[in-house]
């Protein structure tokens, strides 16, 4: 077992413990256990980062060329963004959903061999890493924004129903959920924009202008335009609350369909000859 795998397994254990602490703190409102969350999470992030750097450096000259490596990178970005939101807003309840996801995303690379590897020599380009990392950061921000939006809807419904003493006491404050959702969109936007830009330039350089006729590429740009519209409505038109949350969820679902289209489509797949 290489050292990178050992570091990754340590990170998985720390993420698992963080997920348990987040769940316990949220549901039992245990303030004592809460203090363990930050050190566990930071520990997990450090070990995870070291492991990923070692893997990318040793195996593929900085290219995430395997599905497990992409999962691991997505997990790292999600954990990092959650860590930031926890530090900024002090809300643990989001972690109850994000951290188990991070745990699962890192568990697969930590225990099983990778069956799906991209061998295309065209991937041997430093800009591909930039493209992949930026797009994944954009997706991570969208995932957190989506989860936070769902919590917003639950909290709003709870407060409107006037049964505030019920069992959903663990939900984050309405304004905090709204702010996290918005901040994540703001963080995700430049990442997604630059990710699409680098990806487009790389694709154009390798396959020519025909690339832009691909339906999945068109869908990607449609998603980006929707993203711009969402940010504009929030910033300029003052759309907040439920309508903003619905829009945010819609952008996430479109982004998810773009991801699915990219995974399922056989057009411009680098893994194919």
């Amino acid at each position: 077992m290489g050292m990178s795998l050992l570091w990754l397994r340590v990170a998985v254990v720390l993420y698992g413990a963080s997920a348990l602490v987040a769940g316990w703190t949220t549901l039992r409102q245990g303030t004592r256990v809460r203090s363990f969350l930050q050190p566990l999470l930071i520990g997990g992030l450090l070990f995870h980062f070291v492991s990923l750097v070692e893997v990318l450096n040793n195996n593929h000259h900085w290219m995430p060329m395997a599905v497990h490596e992409l999962e691991s990178l997505l997990g790292l970005l999600l954990a990092g963004l959650f860590c930031w939101s926890f530090y900024r807003y002090g809300t643990v309840s989001l972690g109850m959903f994000v951290l188990p996801l991070v745990f699962l995303l890192t568990l697969a690379p930590a225990i099983g061999p990778d069956f799906d590897t991209f061998f295309s020599p065209r991937l041997r380009n430093g800009w591909v890493l930039v493209h992949v990392a930026l797009v994944l950061a954009g997706y991570s921000a969208l995932i957190l924004s989506f989860l936070s939006s769902l919590l917003y809807l639950l909290q709003e419904q709870r407060l409107k129903s006037k049964h505030a003493g019920g069992s959903y006491r663990w939900l984050p404050p309405l304004d905090t959920a709204d702010q996290i959702s918005y901040r994540m969109l703001l963080i995700g936007f430049p990442c997604m924009t630059l990710g699409l830009l680098t990806g487009s330039l790389l694709a154009e350089a390798s396959t020519g202008p025909s690339y832009f006729g691909d339906p999945k590429v068109i869908l990607s740009f449609a998603m980006w335009l929707l993203y711009v519209f969402l940010l504009w409505t929030r910033r300029s038109a003052g759309v907040r609350g439920r309508r903003a949350v619905y829009l945010s969820c819609f952008v996430f679902l479109v982004a998810l369909s773009v991801w699915a289209a990219n995974s399922l489509s056989t057009v411009h797949r680098f893994s194919l000859p």
Binding site: Q155, L174, T176
Partner: peptide, 9 residues
């Protein structure tokens, strides 16, 4: 106060 916190943090 509790409700205000649940709305505004």
């Amino acid at each position: 106060v509790e409700l205000a916190r649940e709305i505004f943090g």
